[in-house]
Computed example of a mutant assay.
Amino acid sequence: MFRHPLVIRVAHWLNALCLLVLLMSGLQIFNAHPALYWGKVSTFDTPLMSMASSEDDPPKGVTTVLGKSFDTTGFLGSSAGADGQPADRGFPSWATLPSEQDLTGGRSWHFFFAWAFVLNGLAYLLHGLLSGQLRFRLVPSRDQIRHFGASIREHLTLRFPQGDEAKRYNVIQKLTYVAVILVLLPVQVLAGLAMSPAMDAAAPFLLTMFGGRQSARTVHFIVANLLVLFVVVHVALVVLSGFWNNMRGMVTGWFVIERKVEPASASVQTGETT
């Protein structure tokens, strides 16, 4: 079965690249001040969340969330630097782009791929609207909505659709994509724009919408984590439901539909010999 048109496949892989670069460059930017606040200004004494290195010898990484502190040495707050020695960093060097502390470089990567991500997303939506693919891929049918509970049970027991059911996304997939495409991503873009002084001057309603630049930064960070969670679950399901078949579908467009296995008949013929 031909499942994914060329535009969908190209947009998918561009999204994957953009999200990876945006995540790593975003962590680089976050490391310049590894703390989050709520409101218009930074309340340094009472952050919602912070990552810091203690003054111990050797230093320890301490992550504080809503006043509760955790020892995160070696990963958050304090991790090995380029010379292998403990360094005061929010996130470790292997998770950031560039790997060394470079706010200017991180911003350059982040801004370029942010616009690439937005333009790619708009192209995907435009194609989906003009071709009808958007409704087919994102809008659940009444029958799917009625069987929402059954779909949840199938996911929890790792029972994946077969036959005709595998030709379309199920209700959980569709609702998840709707939440990501029409809720999380627009909020993420608007929160990012709200952190720009130039954008705030041109569109002051952005700061009002989020309640301040620091609130927008916190929302941006939280949504980024939700997107990472979505990607992790997405990749896990791709692997569990048939890695090579799913990869072939998203590379070539062709997807193999397995024949649905019907349950054995309850009637048993008697008197037969074998």
Score class of each variant (00 low, 15 high):
Asp200Trp: 06
Lys260Asp: 05
Asn225Glu: 14
Met209His: 04
Arg159Asp: 11
Leu193Met: 13
Thr96Cys: 05
Gln162Trp: 04
Lys40Ile: 01
Arg137Ser: 07
Arg259Ile: 08
Leu76Arg: 03
Gly90Ile: 04
Leu76Pro: 02
Leu134Tyr: 00
Ala264Ser: 07
Val183His: 00
Phe136Pro: 01
Ala116Gly: 11
Pro140Asn: 02
Ile29Tyr: 04
His234Leu: 08
Leu14Glu: 11
Pro92Thr: 04
Val256Gly: 04
Gly77Leu: 07
Asn225Gln: 12
Ala203Ser: 07
Thr270Cys: 05
Phe91Met: 06
Leu27Pro: 08
Ile172Glu: 04
Leu14Ser: 12
Val171Cys: 05
Gly192Ser: 01
Lys167Tyr: 01
Val235Arg: 05
Phe205Pro: 05
Leu158Thr: 09
Leu206Pro: 06
Pro186Met: 00
Ser69Val: 06
Ala236Ile: 03
Ser108Phe: 10
Gln162Asn: 13
Ala203Asp: 06
Ala224Ile: 09
Ile152Tyr: 13
Ile257Thr: 11
Lys260His: 05
Gly192Met: 01
Arg248Trp: 00
Ser42Phe: 05
Glu165Cys: 06
Leu14Lys: 09
Gln28Thr: 14
Ala236Asn: 00
Thr208Met: 09
Val239Tyr: 12
Ala32Glu: 08
Leu138Ile: 09
Leu6Met: 09
Tyr37Ser: 00
Pro58Val: 09
Ala166Tyr: 03
Gln28Asn: 13
Arg159Thr: 15
Gly105Phe: 14
Leu175Tyr: 08
Val187Glu: 00
